[in-house]
Structures are given as C-alpha cells and as structure tokens.
C-alpha cells in the first residue's frame, strides 16, 4: 500500500484529468473509491480521484483524519457541502473516509469499521430510517409516494422519519383502523374569514396569534398554504369562528382501503 500511495500522489492531478485512479487492491479502499465516485465525484461537486470539479480538490490537501471525518459527517456550514452522517452506512462511511484519507497520504487512518465517526468522538443523530420489510415497507412507500399520489400523499401534511411537511402535529396515536384514519376528528381546524377585498372564508389551522401577527394554514388547498396576517391588521381583517367543514377523508381520498392498511402497518412499526 505504501508503494501505491507513493506512486499515486504525485500524479493525482493527472489522474483526475483522465481515467479514475485505479490499481487499488485493498477491499476497503476499493469500496471507498466506489462510494466516492457515486456520491462525491459526480463532477457537479468533487472530481474523480479527488480532483477539483464543481467543488474543491480533495486530494493532497494535507487533511488529517479527524478533519476528513468531521466534514464528511457534518458538512461545511453555508456551503453546498452537507453532512453525510445519516446518508451512508457505517461500512460505507468507513470506506469513503479511508479513501479520502488515502488521497491525502494517510495510509492507516484507524477509523473503526463498525462506527467510524464515534471512534473519532464525532456525535451523530440516529439514522432516520429503520429497516422495514413487507407491508410496513410498502406502507412507508405509500406514505411518501411522490409518483401515484403526488400532492395527495400523507407527507404533504405529516412529517415522519424526518420527511414531510409538518402542517399537522406529530402523529401521537396511530388510528386503530382504516375507518378511524379516514374519519379522524380535527377539532383544531376552524373557519377563518378574511375581510380583504371580498370576504373570504376558509377552513384554517391556527398556529399563532400575537405580536408576530396571525399565522394559520389555509386548509382549503392541497398543499395547505401558510398565511401570515400582520399584527396591525389582525383585528381589522381576521376573524375566526367555530369548527370548519373540513374532513380528513377528503384529503386522503387518493388512497384505497388496502393502501391505508399498509400505511397504518408502517406507522405502527415505527412507533413501537
């Protein structure tokens, strides 16, 4: 390995301009190079073999292992370099860190394979998604389905596993049946009337009312629209009254009962 590094480093710039750096026979490095090429070296960001492309060069920068791991995990604030801590498995994280370390002449970076970030004292939140299978996984795909359901998917209003728009409060209780899910009661939704131009009434989910003005979701539309009324206009244009004629089943009408069964299975699986 040492011989290989000695050979490669002076030619990194040349390699970056031609084929990818090859001749890596260490399986961890080999996997690291694969992960790097598919994840980091899209050329819109970094270039092959650590070369500069849309983002800075990574090879021969005299980075140390801790810096490489912390930037890879948590990103660089206010730049397109985002953290990959939750995007890569521990194995792939270890491999790509090893590869970038290799590009900087570090032959034996001593990342811990099963948890490379923790071994350097880098704290990372838990991965968002636990592995699921069968109907629970099908339910997960239906919950976030951008293709068949489009905007009428659950995640248009619910944030689960770190994905989705949190219009609604976090799901505290999973409904016991599809019927209960369809007919879930929504006492927080009121009728708002705005006396701007023509009087306009709409079902609304009130978020706040006070010094920052009135904030509410206009629930007549999919996706819901977050409206803000400035505090000085509050009493003049904003009126709120009673329960609205709004029903959860209208919003989730794109789903069949069988599909909603799977969605419930998914929600139960992640709440256990």
């Amino acid at each position: 390995m040492k011989q290989l590094v000695t050979f490669l480093l002076p030619f990194i710039g040349i390699l970056a301009g031609n084929a990818y750096a090859a001749n890596i026979d260490d399986p961890v490095l080999e996997r690291g190079q694969e992960v790097y090429e598919l994840t980091c070296a899209t050329s819109y960001c970094h270039g092959p073999a650590g070369g500069q492309a849309g983002a800075p060069r990574l090879a021969a920068r005299e980075f140390d292992a801790l810096y490489i791991a912390s930037v890879t995990a948590n990103g660089v604030p206010n730049t397109p370099m985002v953290g990959f801590a939750n995007a890569l498995s521990a194995e792939d994280m270890n491999a790509v860190l090893t590869y970038v370390a290799f590009l900087n002449g570090i032959i034996n970076p001593q990342f811990t394979v099963d948890d490379p970030l923790a071994s350097l004292g880098i704290a990372v939140a838990n991965p968002r998604r636990i592995p699921l299978a069968g109907e629970a996984q099908e339910g997960r795909e239906l919950f976030f389905d951008a293709y068949d359901k489009s905007l009428k998917r659950c995640s248009t209003c619910h944030e689960v596993e770190g994905i989705g728009i949190p219009v609604a409060s976090p799901i505290a209780t999973v409904p016991g049946s599809v019927s209960a899910l369809r007919n879930i009661e929504t006492p927080n939704i009121s009728t708002v009337t705005l006396s701007i131009g023509s009087n306009e009434s709409m079902p609304a989910l009130l978020l706040s009312r006070g010094i920052a003005g009135v904030k509410f979701y206009d629930m007549s539309a999919v996706p819901p629209v977050l409206r803000t009324i400035p505090p000085e206009s509050d009493s003049e244009v904003f009126n709120i009254a009673g329960n609205a004629d709004w029903h959860h089943h209208d919003y989730i009408s794109a789903y069949t009962d069988e599909e909603l069964e799977r969605v419930l299975t998914f929600l139960r699986a992640i709440s256990e």
Binding site: F144, A146, S155, I163, G164, D218, P223, R227, T228
Partner: peptide, 16 residues
C-alpha cells in the same frame, strides 16, 4: 413592507 404573506411547500427537498 417586506413581511411574509404566504408560503407553500412545493415538495420536500429532503425527499426529492
């Protein structure tokens, strides 16, 4: 005034 009037999420950037 520069104050926000409405806002709508067109998609979730964390998904797409």
């Amino acid at each position: 005034t520069g104050s926000e009037v409405w806002k709508v999420y067109v998609d979730d950037s964390r998904q797409c």
